[in-house]
Amino acid sequence: MTRFLAALIAGSAVLTLSACASPHAPTLAERAAALPDNGAVSDGDTFTCRRIQITGTRRFERICTLDSEWAEQAGRTNEAVEAIGAADRSQVRPDVFPGMYP
């Protein structure tokens, strides 16, 4: 019985160590982290990677896109902010609704 337990423990130790020592294929996150933060693509345009926080979480996501697309997104954001600033600021809910009070 003790021989069996000793063999079982030795076998599990060998399996555990072999699992730790075996090389693994890099995950998508590991491959993305190895990419540079900026550079050029084949057609001459440049790209930039940014860490963007996911809304409602503490997690960040690395987003890589062309610089022209970053500029386009910034332009759309500025247009939206200006539209909100120029919006009508009259009362949304007036104190007295017509027809409700005598």
Rank of each mutant, 00 (worst) to 15 (best):
M1V: 07
R3K: 15
F4S: 01
F4E: 00
F4G: 00
A6P: 00
L8Q: 07
L8S: 00
A10E: 01
S12K: 00
A13H: 03
V14T: 06
L15R: 10
L15N: 11
T16I: 06
S18A: 14
S18Y: 04
A19W: 03
A21S: 07
A21W: 07
P23S: 11
P23A: 13
H24Q: 15
P26F: 11
P26R: 08
L28V: 11
A29S: 04
E30V: 01
E30W: 04
A33K: 10
A34M: 08
L35I: 12
V41Y: 10
D43E: 12
T46Y: 01
C49A: 14
I54W: 07
I54G: 03
T55L: 09
T55A: 09
G56Y: 00
R58A: 15
R59A: 15
R59M: 12
E61A: 13
R62I: 01
I63A: 15
D67Y: 07
W70C: 03
E72W: 02
E72Y: 00
E72D: 07
Q73W: 12
A74W: 06
G75D: 14
G75H: 13
E79F: 04
V81E: 03
V81A: 03
E82S: 13
A83P: 01
A83F: 02
I84W: 14
G85I: 01
A86C: 01
A86L: 03
A87P: 01
D88L: 09
D88V: 11
R89S: 15
R89W: 01
S90T: 01
S90K: 00
V92P: 00
R93T: 10
D95K: 01
V96A: 12
P98E: 01
G99H: 04
G99D: 04
G99F: 05
G99V: 00
Y101I: 14
